[in-house]
Nucleic acid binder design. Sequence first.
DNA 1: TGTACATCAGTGAACGCGCGTTCACTGATGTAC
DNA 2: TGTACATCAGTGAACGCGCGTTCACTGATGTAC
Lengths: 231, 231
Amino acid sequence: MATTRSQRHAATHDEIKKVARQQMAQYGTAGISIRSITRQMGLTAPAIYRYFSSLDDLITELIVDSFNDLADHVESAYTSARGQSYVQQLMAVLMAYREWALTYPVDFQLIYGNPIPGYVAPAEITVPAVVRVFAVIIQLMAEALEDGKLVPSPQYATIPPEIEPTMQMVTQHDGYHVPVLAVYLATVGWPVVHGLIMLELFEHIQPVVGDIETFYRVQIENLLVSIGMIN
Amino acid sequence: MATTRSQRHAATHDEIKKVARQQMAQYGTAGISIRSITRQMGLTAPAIYRYFSSLDDLITELIVDSFNDLADHVESAYTSARGQSYVQQLMAVLMAYREWALTYPVDFQLIYGNPIPGYVAPAEITVPAVVRVFAVIIQLMAEALEDGKLVPSPQYATIPPEIEPTMQMVTQHDGYHVPVLAVYLATVGWPVVHGLIMLELFEHIQPVVGDIETFYRVQIENLLVSIGMIN
DNA sequence: TGTACATCAGTGAACGCGCGTTCACTGATGTAC
DNA sequence: TGTACATCAGTGAACGCGCGTTCACTGATGTAC
């Protein structure tokens, strides 16, 4: 089976990214290096410039890929769970979020971990992908609110006045066509989910809880009950 | 005022750590380097071996210092807040926790961020300091339970059976003389606090909430209400 | 179908750089008598 | 109080290493006629 030059180019391009990911898994996101990537591929270092114009370029592509891959994963969980109760749908989506983080820990660190020294991400490239993930959760919150299946408990029913204006702005600017309260309730859940995953990823919480998957699930359930979600 | 040789030795020892911290703030925890530390101090690189037997030694000392400093800070907030309501005491302690993380972001990353490539922390040295911070929060939970000021809401009143045995073990092993439920309730709050701080530290959540301090405070209050704390 | 030319993947040497650590040393500071 | 000696902070050169990037190049692959 003959392959064209551009197919082979694309294949090598992708393999470079694959090897880069592998090496980040071993040496940390800051340990990425052109020379060690090409060494492992049996190439010399300058060969990489046929595929990426610099190391920063490679990193940016890895980050954008990660965001999109996470968004794809979350969206597909969302699609599969449609028709179930809102608690079940949110649980499915948030389990998918965790699953992705654990399957691709390096990519999750790339997005949410320490910045890579000397590297500055071009913000306009990464923002849209973050929005995709958030959109799914906000969407579910909004639907549940409308259906009367999410009746915010008193503490969550009103947005603190110091926060409300920014929340309004974000809702409009990011193009969520949804009540602000839905955005607020999603934002409230974010730290819980993020904290659970971060603590699991760096193995801080396993020694304390043992069965971390159960702990995650129970915490999410508790969160949903607390904000006023009805199963 | 004459200084002894050992005083001067201690002073230089401390200055090395101070400069190391500064440089980590600029170049990330992975960017620490003997040569750039000594350069900034007007010394040559080998001079550092009068004070630390290797780079890893220096890092270990920085980590241990960080843990203890955090614990000191939290304990002193605890002491100052004694006599107030449990909600107020917990709030004071958790605000102190956040305050420390924001004041010394590098140290917080050293403890809870990405591991430094090639560096492995000797676990027996770092564990006791983590316990110190936790002990304060667990202590408050236990007192509140005993005083009837913490009446766990149904979802938090029983520990999930998959988690209970580990929780028991930790309670005994780490020497908290306290009901397991107190340890569990503290553990439940951990991801929220950790997530909030991590998201703030890397500036992921500011654009969404605007006034992050208020958001933190409100989230902690909500958490305390959810688990069944009475003000 | 065969030839001439253009494209392009990858090489190898070199650039200037920074790194942690070792070693034999100098010279100042402290201590014992 | 003064002298002889020991201690120790810091130096400068060297070690072997890895890094990103540039450059002129070779040789294979693809394209146009």
